[in-house]
Design a protein around this nucleic acid. Structure first.
Length: 126
DNA sequence: TCGTTGACTATTT
DNA sequence: GAAATAGCCAACG
């Protein structure tokens, strides 16, 4: 554990997101809690925001291997069970919702029932 | 170094 | 129940 680099914290977030099973979702707060609150929920969101769409080809850093194609960032939602991509004009919310529905997650009233699709095993296995 | 912003959450009013 | 406030951490200028 010793890497005191900021990138290491980002890698932790990406790694956790990759562990989310298909058809399940997680919240920013859950990931923040899993990291022992080393990162606030907002920082987790920023980590996904900084997630590159493509792997860095220039040499390779430790955290550069994570990208939108490897990290199911669409499975990460807010506590309300809705997508927060509305802040990003580059990423329409329909995109995330469509990907979630493609995995079996059904949206109800523009939101996802966390009691049904929330990856409880994430906290239970902690 | 300081101030602002943001893919957040919980509490209070 | 919606709106406002506070706490939180990281990146940018």
């Amino acid at each position: 554990m010793g890497k005191t680099k900021s990138s290491s914290v980002f890698s932790e977030v990406y790694k956790i997101v990759q562990q989310i099973p298909k058809g399940k979702v997680l919240t920013y707060g859950a990931i923040s809690n899993k990291l022992n609150r080393r990162l606030s929920a907002q920082a987790v969101g920023w980590a996904l925001n900084a997630l590159p769409e493509r792997p860095t080809k220039s040499s390779d850093s430790s955290a550069s291997q994570y990208h939108s194609g490897n990290v199911p960032w669409h499975r990460v939602i807010n506590s309300k069970g809705g997508v927060s991509t509305s802040k990003r004009p580059d990423m329409p919310e329909d995109q995330q919702q469509n990907m979630l529905e493609a995995e079996g997650v059904r949206f109800v009233d523009c939101c996802v029932p966390l009691e049904k699709y929330y990856w409880k095993d994430f906290d239970a296995n902690n």
